[in-house]
Amino acid sequence: MAESYVTESEVAHHEALQHHFENMEQQREAAALGMWVFLVTEIMFFGGMFLAYTLYRRVYPQSFAVASNHLNIWLGAVNTIILICSSFTMALAVYCTQVGKRQLQIIFLIVTMVFGAGFLGIKAVEYHEKYVDNLIPGRLIPSRPFNPAVNQEGAPHDEHKLTLIAGAAVKQVELFYWIYFAMTGMHALHMIIGLGIMSFLLYFSIRGHYGPEYHNPVEISGLYWHFVDIVWIFLFPLLYLLGRHMGGHG
């Protein structure tokens, strides 16, 4: 040390301790608190979309039931289970870092990334189904404007067509799909960013940067990952399940 005023006890500090913190404990709590503040802004960000959803579901309940019932409940349910599994493995990755099990820490990070990628893969399959059925709203895809076929009374049932119930209208179904793509799209974007963060964590985990003494990045990335899971915990029942009892399946 070039500076003569650095005492011996300060030199003994953990190398990851930044100079503006008293000790590792304070640094850890500050990092977690900062992440929570960011998550508050995220809650308000998604909250605006949940507000729009609540409002229009209240105004057009029949059309929202029709649109909701057209979503693939099995893919939605499997994705919910995948995300919960990924949150579980993320929690275990944080745990393994805290207790110094480096091999397991790396394995759980990889498993979490595999679950995350699996979720996005299934989401892509769902989006493609909607694309095939002309359910992408407005003219987001210029060659395929929103133009779903509707099952007619007496004709054989086609699961690619909407089944309208009394009080439902195709124009209002389109509103549901705007909200559906906005919410699941923003959620998917958060998943993609999450995978980027995971890659970063994995790289530094393999290089041995994180252990019982210092693991703030693992801990706060975990907070972010769990938050994205929570958003889906609300999206699944609201988008896929509500209205299942009202008929109009297909």
Binding site: S87, F88, M90, A91, G222, L223, H226, F227, D229, I230, I233, F234, F236, P237, L238, L241, L242
Partner: peptide, 17 residues
Amino acid sequence: ALTIACIKAALVILYFM
């Protein structure tokens, strides 16, 4: 549906987070 979702979210927040 919302009650179950809130309970699930609370468990994630309290324990996982």
